[in-house]
Design a protein around this nucleic acid. Structure first.
Length: 474
DNA sequence: CTATGGCACGGATT
DNA sequence: AATCCGTGCCATAG
């Protein structure tokens, strides 16, 4: 059996600690950027040719999972298999959205930034003089993929007409993810509807709703819409569901709208999970396979010529080379330690929350980070850092924040949702009625708290949930 | 008068 | 030390 290559951690220096902490805070994307930055800055750091398993050092074929780390451990067949998986490519030096880098060849899009990803799609459609402007727009996108600057100002700044700017923007908006570069979520939706109705059969009425009644729809004012358009309320509800499934007001995010109402929900919707939980071979009878997605750190290495170079260097240059060498060494160690911590944490979490993962939200166990920290014998802040900013992809495909595993109220909230789902819609339950129902089931919460949970779940107050037998809202 | 949302407080958690 | 969360009190709408 292979030993873990990186088990032994050298004595902790302050620098070591500081760097490990900041690395631990980072998710897959951030860490990847950090590594790329280090690669560009530090000549002592290189990428190894062969791919190694970041967990055990086993040589891997291209794109393969480590056959050793993904073996069920003997003696504990029920435990989840947690392994580190190196994904992503390193961005070659100097390709961070330089204006000279408009190559048409579409390389693997796995690890491109959003800017580059879009730029590559539209490069051929753009006139040469438009490229700087397109690049500017893409560079200024916020994290949702929206461009929120004032178009007049931008046009003036670049000395072009508003029409030209709009034309460039249109080109961007049509690229994947569709709607990117829009000025608002509403605009993004309209673009998406437009594209969608061209490629597939979207009912005209949906288009109309999206154009004129988007806001009422988001507030779930189905009745108002159905009255004004003189259509069945069912159609409006269908439209709402259709939108929620097919559209995304924040183009840079994926998996939007699965289980949270739009509007106030900026807590969810991430593109790349840090942890992927699934069954071996997707077979529910097999044990859980938990993949921790990390950048290709196993491929990070000290430049083999470097120690040689240090020896041969003159006295003056020696110092500088040595600094780079030490920095590279430290970075590699810290990353290994980060991953090790992450792995131990995820092992623990999946063991504890197995029911939750398999059977759903009502089976979540309320745990705190402190409990885990004691178990793993690390400082509680370490757990905090390891959990923050990370996302997990569940077996059903949903991507949720890792902090969900520590959500103490999720259980009560799902119970509340069940109660509301079962209520008679002609006579909806008020918050205090919900409270007493919950109490019967053993959940002691204040009436005020029920209201808060309702809000969290985007459920309307009782009188707005009322539906009389004709199927219309009261 | 009832149901609900806003504000703020205190204790727990990070 | 900072933040989050459940809760009580009060104002407001219906």
């Amino acid at each position: 059996m292979y030993q873990r290559q990186f088990q032994k951690i050298s004595p902790l220096t302050t620098a070591h600690l500081a760097q490990t902490m900041s690395l631990l805070n980072m998710n897959y994307g951030d860490l990847n950027q950090e590594i790329n930055k280090a690669l560009n800055e530090n000549p002592a750091l290189v990428v190894r040719e062969e791919r190694l398993c970041p967990g055990c050092g086993h040589k891997l074929a291209e794109g393969q999972r480590c056959p050793i780390c993904t073996q069920p451990k003997t003696g504990s067949p029920d435990e989840a298999i947690v392994f580190l998986s190196a994904r992503g490519e390193f961005i070659p030096k100097g390709s961070s959205l330089g204006l000279d880098d408009f190559s048409d060849d579409l390389m693997g899009t796995d690890n491109l930034t959003l800017e580059e990803f879009v730029l590559r799609q539209i490069a051929s459609e753009l006139r040469v003089e438009d490229r700087a402007i397109a690049a500017y727009i893409l560079n200024q996108l916020d994290e949702d993929g929206l461009f929120r600057e004032d178009l007049d100002d931008v046009a003036e700044y670049f000395h072009i007409s508003l029409d030209d700017l709009t034309r460039i923007k249109r080109i961007i908006q049509k690229a994947e993810p569709i709607g990117v570069g829009s000025s608002s979520p509403e605009e993004a939706i309209r673009v998406q509807i437009g594209e969608l109705s061209e490629s597939s059969k979207t009912p005209d009425i949906y288009v109309k709703i999206s154009e004129e009644y988007l806001h009422p729809l988001l507030k779930k004012q189905f009745k108002e819409i159905s009255d004004q358009l003189n259509i069945p309320q069912k159609t409006v509800a269908d439209a709402a569901e259709y939108f929620s499934k097919n559209l995304n007001p924040f183009p840079a995010r994926s998996h939007w709208g699965d289980f949270r109402s739009p509007g106030e929900g900026d807590t969810l919707g991430y593109s790349n999970p840090d942890v992927v939980i699934n069954h071996v071979n997707n077979d529910p009878n097999q044990p859980l396979l938990v993949e921790i997605v990390i950048p290709s750190v196993s491929n990070l290495d000290i430049n083999p010529y470097y120690s040689q170079a240090i020896k041969e260097a003159g006295e003056g240059a020696k110092e500088e080379l040595k600094t780079d060498f030490d920095k590279a060494n430290l970075l590699i160690k810290c990353i290994q330690q980060r991953n090790n911590t992450l792995q131990r944490l995820v092992e623990k979490i999946t063991a504890i929350q197995k029911e939750f993962i398999l059977k759903g939200e009502s089976h979540i166990k309320p745990i705190t980070r402190v409990e885990i920290s004691k178990d793993l014998e690390v400082h509680e802040s370490t757990i905090s850092r390891a959990v923050s900013n990370k996302t997990v992809q569940m077996p059903d495909g949903r991507i949720i924040p890792m902090s969900t595993f520590f959500d103490r109220s999720l259980k009560v909230r799902t119970m509340m949702k069940e109660i509301i789902a079962k209520e008679k819609k002609a006579n909806p339950l008020s918050d205090s009625e919900i409270q007493s129902q919950l109490e019967k089931k053993g959940f002691k919460v204040a009436r005020r708290t029920v209201a808060k949970y309702r809000l969290m779940e985007g459920i309307m107050p009782a009188h707005q949930r009322k539906i009389n037998p004709t199927g219309k809202k009261e």
